[in-house]
């Protein structure tokens, strides 16, 4: 089945790219691999007929957020090569072990839960979900929708204020 081949291809690439985000020593490469991961995930969303989320994922995440990341990386001119924490050389095994514990225990619950659900088939979504999404967003989820705007306003104000260059005028106005 070509769909499942495509799915597994995306699966493997996403996983590999995610690993490379952590393993690559150059921050720019990390960012590029992060974009790749996001694109793969968008592909997986598409396979689940979540076209809208896929589009948002590509446009907002890969398109906007990651550009911001790259921009800051360039701005700060981070030439120094990323090395792993020196202190963690010896502790790395423990970190991996802890993460494995997390992965295994949560993953095991997924296996156990889903084994009981073998017979459940995903119901069909209406073919054209985007109007429904829009309607739901502005009715049922009106409050979170508004809150998101507040959140973004805060982020903008805060980012602008914190990252702002200190002008000489500022000292005079607060004294």
């Amino acid at each position: 089945m070509p769909v499942s081949i495509l799915y597994y291809a995306l699966f493997v690439i996403a996983l590999g790219a995610a690993l490379m985000v952590v393993l690559s020593r150059n921050t720019v490469y990390s960012a590029a691999f992060l974009i790749l991961t996001m694109l793969c995930l968008a592909g997986i969303f598409l396979l689940m007929h979540q076209e809208f989320v896929a589009a948002i994922q590509v446009i907002v995440y890969a398109g906007a957020i990651m550009v911001l990341f790259l921009f800051v990386i360039m701005l700060l001119n981070l030439r120094e090569r990323e090395i792993l924490l020196p202190d963690f050389r010896s502790l790395r095994i423990w970190v991996v072990l802890l993460v494995l514990v997390f992965f295994v225990q949560v993953g095991a619950t997924c296996f156990i839960v889903l084994r009981q659900m073998r017979d459940v088939y995903p119901p069909e979504l209406p073919p054209d979900t985007i109007p429904l999404i829009a309607k739901t967003l502005l009715t049922k989820y009106l409050l979170p929708f508004e809150l998101v705007s507040v959140l973004l306003v805060i982020a903008i104000i805060g980012a602008a204020m914190i990252a702002r260059h200190d002008e000489p005028a500022e000292h005079s106005d607060s004294s």
Partner: peptide, 30 residues
């Protein structure tokens, strides 16, 4: 037919775990 779910969830958890490792071993704040 829950294999899509198990696959997706495993992928999700795997990426999440990789993220945790990244958080714990990287030095650069970005």
């Amino acid at each position: 037919m829950t294999s899509y779910m198990i696959n997706n969830l495993v992928l999700s958890l795997a990426i999440f775990s990789i993220g945790i490792i990244g958080f714990l071993v990287k030095r650069n704040a970005i």
